[in-house]
Design a protein around this nucleic acid. Structure first.
Lengths: 201, 201
DNA sequence: GAATAAAACGAACGATCGTGCTATTTTGCC
DNA sequence: GGCAAAATAGCACGATCGTTCGTTTTATTC
């Protein structure tokens, strides 16, 4: 409607493209994502899809951003609605479990870390690094609040606990993909419970 | 020498090819490994390299096997030389740390799990599954021995502890690739110590 | 409805992919 | 040193890759 707000209606198809790209990247990762296959999926021409991003790398970056936002909305947003403390941290973990359950056939973010953990810097790697760093900070913040409230021991290292949780969720993702979600979830849940118990004040 | 033992001296070049393939796959994963780039690396023709394996998939399988064996020799072999008990488990973990330090710019096995955690079965996925399953069994076995000796609590779940260790090592690999080995190693070491402490008899 | 801008198409490009064929070279054995 | 066999090279194929360009269709604005 407004000229200053929406530049055009083609932004909707951009969303559609990213939606399909998300499904493709879940199976073959960001590096396995090809514009030809993507165009076939959305029922457009290759050049039509390409024009929306200008380059494959920009498409990958856009998809990475969209996925990061999706993950944040799915996991962190519900947690923030909880009162600060252990309950918020537990909600965060619980939503993460749900995310892993839905994405047991492959998560774009998890594979992205593995794909760009090399030494040489690329725009993709930089973005992945930013995302992971920011997410770890969010976790550490929630943990710190739980310490202040008194739900967790005051002498713990928030970054360490954030690492421990993150590692267990990585284990969940990997085991879910290989051995099925049920078994992986049992192990991860037990490990998480043991972890929180060990940090009780 | 013997006709029955060595089929030919070309098996040496096969090793050479796998050696170069290993370095390439460390950066781009098994799916990113291309025969053209590999041939360029070893100074051979594409078809010359190709003839050694018959197909790209067989090359990937061979590389996966070779890497698995390499990992086992590097991590498990020194651990077996230790007396059964916690010391053996700790040695195993310690060697794993060393493996992660060397491979902080990318580990073929870690990325292979992420690459083939999809739903549809492929020979690659099957092999990765076998490898990971077998490795987890080895870990659980070492843990069980430590329980029998009395170094670990008798009521723990060996598969769970194996999962917890595996998850922490995954976290180590991922953090080392993104944030550097030093920080990742500190966190992982602290987490491992806390973990073992929690299972003390 | 005409004028204008945005969006999508279609064809082609050079490059690389994995793979099959047929020579040619190299190796091991007598 | 000649001979058979293994190893490698060379060439070509169809397919797909990301990308460019000019045209055509669709949407927006007056």
């Amino acid at each position: 409607m407004n000229a200053a707000t929406t530049p055009g209606k083609g932004a909707a198809t951009r969303e559609l493209i990213l939606e399909h790209a998300y499904e493709l990247a879940r199976q073959d990762g960001l590096e396995g994502l090809s514009i030809g296959a993507l165009a076939l999926g959305v029922g457009m021409s290759k050049s039509g899809v390409f024009a929306h991003f200008g380059s494959r790398e920009d498409l990958q970056l856009a998809l990475l951003d969209a996925t990061g936002k999706r993950f944040f909305d799915f996991v962190m947003a519900p947690a923030i609605k909880q009162p600060r403390g252990l309950q918020r941290v537990r909600t965060l973990v619980e939503r993460w479990f749900e995310w892993a359950r839905i994405h047991q056939s492959g998560c774009v973010l998890v594979s992205a870390v593995a794909e760009y953990d090399g030494r040489d810097d690329s725009p993709l790697r930089t973005r992945v690094k930013q995302q992971q760093s920011s997410w770890r900070s969010e976790m550490a913040r929630a943990i710190r609040l739980a310490m202040e409230v008194g739900d967790l021991r005051a002498d713990l290292d928030p970054d360490l606990l954030a690492f421990e949780i993150y590692a267990l969720m990585l284990g969940l993702h990997h085991d879910a993909g290989l051995f099925g979600f049920e078994q992986a979830s049992r192990h991860a849940h037990a490990a998480i419970d043991r972890l929180f118990a060990s940090y009780q004040p």
